[in-house]
Structures are given as C-alpha cells and as structure tokens.
Design a binder for these strands. Structure first.
Length: 127
DNA sequence: GCATTGACGAAGG
DNA sequence: CCCTTCGCCAATG
C-alpha cells in the first residue's frame, strides 16, 4: 500500500482508533511480516513516514490489545533486535515462546541472527 | 491544560 | 565503543 509519508505523520490522534490511519497502518504492516521474520519499530515507522516517531509504533501495537486485531506484535522488536516489549504480552515469556514457535531463536532477550531475519516492510514488493 | 512517560532511535560525549 | 541525552508524538495523570 502506497502512503503519503508526509501526510501520514500529520494525522491527528484525537480521533477514534478506527479512524486513526496510523494505528491501522501499523497493524496492517505488522500482519504482513512473514512467519519466522522480524522487523523493528523504526522500520515500520519509517515505512509509514513517521521515521522519527518509532515510539508511536509501540503505542499503536499496544492499542491493538482488546481491539480484536490479531497483530503479530511479537515479530516487532527494537532496532537492536531486543524484545523490549516482551513484558506486554501477558506473561514475560509469551513473546519469546511465540517467536520460538516460528523458529526465531531468542537469546538474552535478543533475536539471534536478527539481521538475517530482519524484514523491511518497504521491500515487501521486492521479494 | 500542563507535566510525565513510553513496546524507539539517532547523535553526542 | 559504551553510556547518556535529546527528540518524537500521543496517552495518561
């Protein structure tokens, strides 16, 4: 999906989540992450045009809780490959286990071979 | 309505 | 090269 980056970053957040394109976009991108692959908040933010607002991606994923949206947030880690959001999965080990099921090895709260498993949303069409 | 924080990241020391 | 600080933008107190 092609998005006007500059516009995406200027979307107000005072509206309902359903209207908040940024959130829905983040979820959409997250859902596109191939199984066994991972990406970073910054990569998604950059893809949405809010590169300097990687934190918003974290908020967006956090908002996905209770929305019924099945967002594979466990495939999203920080730029260092660390499972910075593992504590938000109900149990501190749930994120690791979900990744492990996808053959993504986690060691010391970090994704092993993160660079190899890294998936850039901007290259989804370049597969 | 102002101040603080947060699932981040880049830059500076 | 590791640690600290600042910037981003929205949510929460």
């Amino acid at each position: 999906m092609k998005i006007k980056k500059t516009e995406r970053a200027k979307i107000p957040a005072t509206e309902k989540a359903a209207q908040y394109n940024f959130y829905t976009d983040v979820w959409s991108v997250a859902k596109k992450i191939p199984r066994g692959r991972v990406t970073s908040y910054g990569a998604i933010a950059n893809y949405l045009g809010a590169k300097s607002s990687a934190r918003l991606v974290g908020w967006a994923l956090n908002m996905s809780h209770g929305t019924g949206e099945k967002v594979p947030a466990h495939r999203v880690v920080n730029r260092n490959g660390m499972l910075s959001g593992k504590m938000h999965f109900g149990t501190p080990t749930l994120m690791e286990e979900l990744l492990l099921k996808e053959k993504t090895i986690v060691k010391e709260n970090k994704v092993v071979d993160f660079e190899k498993k890294f998936w850039d949303p901007g290259k989804e069409l370049s597969l």
